[in-house]
């Protein structure tokens, strides 16, 4: 029984694509103006790769990330995650998708202020199917001594590390990071990027980082440049740099 790839594969690869996006278009109205956030984007993301989506503010990269993460739906086109079709899924299905498969890291951390670091992470373990222990996730981000601190008692970098621990604790298939270093200083930003690289390497989690900081692109397997809602370039980077080598 021959195993054959069905249809046309855009990027030939040994790995199965985790995400397949075809003809993604997103338009929305902002007051009187119609904004084309995404224009007919075709994209595949593969298991275990570290992808940086690079582009200027307002270029549509956040919209793309939100659609991939099941937070937003495209105006037209389709997105398939493994064998789930995300386009056309209802809210309950999207919620289950996020719950089971996606880890999010935000620019402003978005921790629950009324919960300690440990509790913020544990919160996710309550709804995940086979999570690691909250303490283990916090150990991975190097916060063993900050377990019982509330967000208001932590620095920005520490808060972001808690947020990363919270994202990885459920062993997600994909980690989506929206400007994870945007609110951090240079040194702290590097620590966070190093952490993301390590998690990608050690846990094999498909990681997508969106940023307008071109220097970060050097640590990615692939760099996707987006401008005005269109992919202008996809670069393969066979020689990933370690974050501590990055300069910006």
């Amino acid at each position: 029984m021959p195993l054959e790839a069905a249809g046309t594969e855009v990027t030939p690869s040994a790995a199965e694509p985790v995400f397949r996006a075809r003809g993604l278009t997103k338009t929305y109205r902002m007051g009187e103006v119609e904004v084309h956030a995404l224009r007919r984007i075709d994209l595949d993301l593969f298991a275990g790769e570290f992808v940086v989506i690079l582009g200027p503010s307002g270029g549509g990269k956040s919209t793309l990330l939100n659609i991939l993460g099941g937070l937003d739906v495209p105006t037209s086109g389709e997105v398939i995650f493994r064998d789930h079709k995300l386009t056309g899924a209802d809210e309950t299905e999207l919620t289950r998708f996020r719950r089971e498969h996606v880890g999010f890291v935000f620019q402003f951390y978005n921790l629950i202020p009324s919960l300690t670091a440990r509790e913020n992470v544990a919160l996710v373990t309550e709804i995940a199917s086979s999570p690691m222990a909250a303490e283990e996730a916090l150990h991975l981000v190097g916060l063993d001594d900050r377990l019982d601190h509330f967000p208001a008692q932590l620095s920005g970098g520490e808060q972001q590390r808690v947020a990363i621990a919270r994202a990885i604790v459920k062993r997600p298939d994909v980690l989506l990071c929206d400007e994870p270093t945007g609110a951090l200083d240079y040194a702290t930003g590097k620590i966070v990027l190093d952490l993301l690289a390590r998690i990608n390497r050690d846990l094999g989690t498909t990681t997508v980082v969106i940023t307008h900081n071109a220097a970060i692109a050097a640590m990615a397997d692939r760099v996707i440049r987006i401008r005005s809602g269109e992919i202008v370039e996809i670069l393969h980077n066979p020689n990933r740099m370690s974050p501590d080598q990055l300069e910006w």
Partner: peptide, 9 residues
């Protein structure tokens, strides 16, 4: 944020 993390409404 909780909704994004996968908590239901």
């Amino acid at each position: 944020s909780l909704r994004v993390l996968g908590f239901t409404r």
